[in-house]
Amino acid sequence: MSQGRMVQIEQDILSKNNEYAAANRRFFSEHGILALNLVSSPGSGKTMLLTRTIEDLKGELAVTVIEGDQQTDNDAERIRATGVKALQINTGKGCHLDGHMVGHALQRLKPADGGVLFIENVGNLVCPAAFDLGEAHKVTILSVTEGEDKPIKYPDMFHASDLMILNKTDLLPYLDFDVEKCIDNARRVNPGIRVLQLSARTGEGMAGWCRWIRAARQLALVEHPELAASA
């Protein structure tokens, strides 16, 4: 068989996604919106953390939520019950949200200028690490029922995250989870990662998380002084 023609490509496999993510990031920056991408294994408490966070912050900040799930609409229902706008994206067999899906969701949701957008990703500690959505920060939620070796089993996710939330600390007395070991493992893959410990159930530690969100939002507003007081 004769040879075909050679074509140089030199393109990142994820280049298409990265273009969509860049467009989302531009949108967030123009509108002074803080976008956070929440990732974890299924059941670590992302939705419960979100509903609780919204209760704590909704009087103070304009909050909008994008919910990623393979099949159901349950999580968006749980969010809407708090009174904030939420859009469900069903990814079907897809195991992560991508920049394109989030771009479409933004057109439909129209999040308020100067507000906070939470994106609950599909429960999965592998694929969402590679797919940029245009967020300011990835936040990994790890619950203390999962084992302290998770950061080493899924190094890419912890490497890509700026914050690790150790959730379900109310259960610590009943487990032999080694908190220090877990934090040490996370720092091995990402020396700069910040760590917060909390219980979305009892509310212990929630105040620190809310302070972190306010601080991150101030950064999103650096170029929008007119939005700083409002929403």
């Binding site: 023609r5 030199e10 393109q11």
Partner: peptide, 9 residues
């Protein structure tokens, strides 16, 4: 994670 080159017709 890069696509380097292709052989095509």
């Amino acid at each position: 994670m890069r696509i380097k080159e292709l052989e095509v017709d």
